[in-house]
Amino acid sequence: MAVQYSVIDSAVEISGLTKAYGDYLAVNRLDLTIRKGEIFGLLGPNGAGKTTTILMMLGLTEPSNGTVRVLGLDPASSSLDIKRRVGYMPDDLGFYEDRTATDNLIYTARLNGLSEETARESAKELLDRVGLSAAGGKKVGAYSRGMRQRLGLADVLIKRPEMIILDEPTLGIDPKGVTELLELITVLSKEEGLTVLLSSHHLQQVQQICDRVGLFVGGKLVACGDIEQLSRSLEQKNAIIVELEVGRKTEQFEQSIGEIEGVNSVRCSVSGMNGSHAAFEVVCDADVTPEIARVAATESELLSLRKRSYHLDDIYRRYFEGGDAHGA
């Protein structure tokens, strides 16, 4: 029993999870733990295997290998129990368009075994909560994208879940709508102690509200932790970039920059007519900015110099590019 209790602390435990479609590995030996009550962001480009992972958590797809425990339950054998306690919002969610929002919510509630009156009450309360109380009697066909997404949130919450999984909740909404939705999610999660798993390909949005983030690329979790941890670990691994703009570009100049100790590579990003003007990106292992400045000043005409460290953004973009190359 003691073992059971320790398992209960985490909402999701995934180890060695693999899903193969023929030769293609959609999810490749994934290990992931999500604690109870946290907002976890699953960040990754399209086709990284986020949705597949979520489907396996709910028992909607069978894993090829590995184990999944959601709220201590095995999706393969107690999928129904999990679906009763976990709310899932698909990435492109649809409603019965010729029914009103209230009807749609009541239907979901009834499927979860709530009685007619309780369902009606909860639907009203939740519509109020997500700011749709005025539009509750309108047919969903007349809803805008942002309204649908908020209705989706209400739809997920009406079964009173312990955990909610939101697949790309911010897809296709305008920036103001995104902010509102994310705020709503944060408030709901903190007030009700919900565990939230959120998948997205927008770094900024995930950064805003998530306690912890998992970077998911090509079916693998490449980094996991809170935002600070992530950027720290990435900083250590990666070097400093010096952006440099000079008035004259000669081959000799490029060479002497490359010869400075600590410089990893030199890349010419912009090159003007007849070598009159050029910009370089110098990647260094250590901070050698002063040296670069001196060489630039003596051998050419230094116009500007900027040092920048690797951000999560850069890393994410780099992985994104890598992911795209894989996909293509």
Partner: peptide
């Protein structure tokens, strides 16, 4: 009435799938 809106109520859980 549910004490807290989003906490699972035990009787809601016991619902069978035949009613669904």
């Amino acid at each position: 009435l549910p004490v807290r809106l989003f906490r699972p109520k035990e009787d809601a859980r016991s619902a069978t799938s035949t009613s669904a």
